[in-house]
Simulated scan of single mutants.
Amino acid sequence: MLFFSLAILTISSLAFAYEPSPLQDFCVADSKPSARVNGLACKDPKMVEANDFFFSGLHMAGNTSNAVGSSIKPVNAAQIPGLNTLGVAMVRLDFAPWGINPPHTHPRASEILTVLEGTLEVGFVTSNPENRLITKVLNKGDVFVFPVGLVHFQRNVGNCNAVAIAAFSSQNPGLMGVASAVFGSNPPISSDVLSKAFQVDKKIVEQLQWKF
């Protein structure tokens, strides 16, 4: 019985490990205070208005004329101050034909994605030691979930543009691109370290670092 109680307590603690429930109706983000907090300071509730909970623009397609052929339009506490402390955020993803959202992680949130138009190949990789790829081709109306912290990606596998909406279990899920983090860090990771890690020649590592 004691073991069961401890297990329940541990699970409950993990459930609240990221963003605890708010202690008031809302905490609309106030960008004016200089105090640094884990999140954003609250605006005076008497000054709150409807626009603090509103954003318009997800109907507009993003610009996919870039190296990876995709665009991400975020909707978080920076766009909707009323999201502050509510533990949710979302993005619109646009893909040119065969465009990708490169492998990346969200260190603070799980993600649930819905395809609005087109066909996407999506997937994530499980952690060590398996490193197993879980992948699926999604069509319009299909939904897929990416667990918190795991490396994942999306790719348009059609000849038409694709659009998706993704929601997160954090107001600030964070974004760490695998390639940009490894090869584009500032200051750079030693090419000796990366050449041994990836088992490739240092010149290849240096070329990748130059690109990022």
Rank of each mutant, 00 (worst) to 15 (best):
T135E: 12
G99P: 07
S21V: 12
G184Y: 10
N172E: 14
G62M: 13
N76E: 08
Q199R: 13
N131A: 12
F183K: 02
I11H: 09
D30H: 08
C27A: 12
T135A: 08
N101W: 00
P74D: 04
N84Y: 00
G99F: 02
C160L: 12
G184V: 07
I189M: 06
V122Y: 02
K196D: 08
F198Q: 09
M90N: 01
V122P: 01
L9W: 03
G69I: 10
C160R: 14
F144S: 00
T135C: 03
T119Y: 06
S65D: 15
L93I: 14
I100L: 05
K136E: 12
L150G: 01
L194S: 01
P188A: 14
D94T: 05
N161S: 15
A197H: 12
L2V: 15
I204Y: 14
P81Q: 05
A89R: 00
A77Q: 13
I165K: 08
A89M: 05
S185T: 01
K73Y: 08
I11M: 14
P103F: 12
A179S: 14
L6W: 05
Q199V: 09
D201W: 05
L93E: 06
P129G: 06
I8Y: 01
G158D: 12
V157C: 06
T126N: 09
D30Q: 12
S65L: 07
T10E: 02
V137S: 07
I80W: 00
D44W: 10
T10D: 03
Q154N: 12
M176R: 01
G177N: 10
D30M: 11
N156Q: 11
G87P: 11
T64S: 08
C160M: 13
I72W: 04
G123C: 10
L2G: 09
A17C: 09
A89S: 15
A7P: 02
I11W: 07
R155T: 03
D30K: 08
